[in-house]
């Protein structure tokens, strides 16, 4: 008995050691980014690399913030992210509700077609989407990033899967009491779907906050740029001339909201991966 408990403890210890090592490997680039944000331009290029800066250069943060309007980028990112997240929660939950609960001809086929859109690579959609935005006169506006982001096949799928698990008896009782579809959705389904709302909200927030490629194509003026676009504005064609210390400082400030959000909602983030089998 004692032998079994000792071996179990050994396995536990080994598991912990392995997990700690994996944790270190995962967190190392992040720590590296933070420490590099305090280095001088020369220290960034030193080989073998130095982990700790000789002297913490707090001025990197000031310099980065002064060189480019990061406050503007921050506001733009926040606006886009909030609109997209709230919008996507709304449209995906409505779509999910329809696919999970309502009966209409071709429902399953329509759902499959909607899911199939996930298989089309973005570069294929890029030019048609660009032309649509152009015909709306939305080039170089935040609308061009927000509106296409309001709908998500993956989010609808996530919502539908969750809603299918809600007992139908609740709906039936509400229907008997004279509840309309809209009221049913708003008063019964939405309150029961809080966990999946949190999961989709976190995924969407993180994805939109870090979105780079589509805003790169759509946004032309500095005042409309988002944080990821602002970060690359330091990059030069000659790598050695790129002020990586400033990029790291700006990156640290950029990831802060994401970290806070992740800390608050990590339970839902993990749940989302488990529920859907997909990450983002």
């Amino acid at each position: 008995m004692l032998k079994k408990s000792t071996s179990k403890r050994l396995v536990d210890y080994l598991s912990y050691i392995l997990l700690i090592l994996t944790g270190i490997v995962v967190i190392l680039p992040f720590v590296w980014m933070i420490l590099s944000s305090f280095k001088t331009a020369g220290e960034i290029w030193t080989f073998p690399p130095v982990f700790m800066p000789k002297k913490f250069q707090w001025s990197n943060y000031v310099e980065a913030w002064k060189a480019l309007p990061f406050d503007r980028f921050f506001i733009n990112s926040l606006l886009v992210t909030i609109f997209v997240t709230v919008g996507q929660l709304f449209t995906c939950s409505l779509g999910g509700y329809a696919f999970a609960r309502l009966r209409f001809p071709g429902k399953d086929k329509l759902f499959l077609m909607y899911l199939a859109t996930m298989m089309i690579p973005f570069p294929v959609l890029m030019i048609p989407l660009f032309i649509i935005m152009q015909s709306f006169g939305w080039i170089d506006t935040l609308k061009s990033i927000i509106v296409p982001g309001l709908f998500s096949a993956w989010g609808t799928f996530l919502m539908r899967q969750f809603m299918m698990g809600i007992p139908r008896t609740l709906e039936d009782a509400a229907k008997i009491d004279g509840c309309s579809y809209w009221r049913l959705y708003w008063k019964i389904i939405v309150p029961l779907c809080k966990p999946v709302f949190a999961t989709l909200g976190i995924f969407t927030f993180m994805g939109t906050w870090n979105q780079f490629f589509w805003p790169l194509i759509m946004i032309n003026t500095i005042s409309n740029k988002t944080l990821p676009l602002g970060l690359v504005m330091f990059q030069t064609r000659i790598a050695a001339e790129t002020p990586w210390h400033l990029i790291m400082a700006a990156s640290c400030a950029t990831v802060l909201p994401i970290i806070i959000l992740f800390i608050i909602g990590q339970k839902y983030y993990v749940k989302g991966i488990v529920t859907s089998g997909l990450k983002g």
């Binding site: 790169l216 194509i217 032309n220």
Partner: peptide, 26 residues
Amino acid sequence: VQLDWGISFANYNTKLPVLLAGGSPP
């Protein structure tokens, strides 16, 4: 004047063809 600068070289060469092909060139 609308200045779109600070696009890294690789990204520039991705964005430019889209703008040209999409009919909204600088």
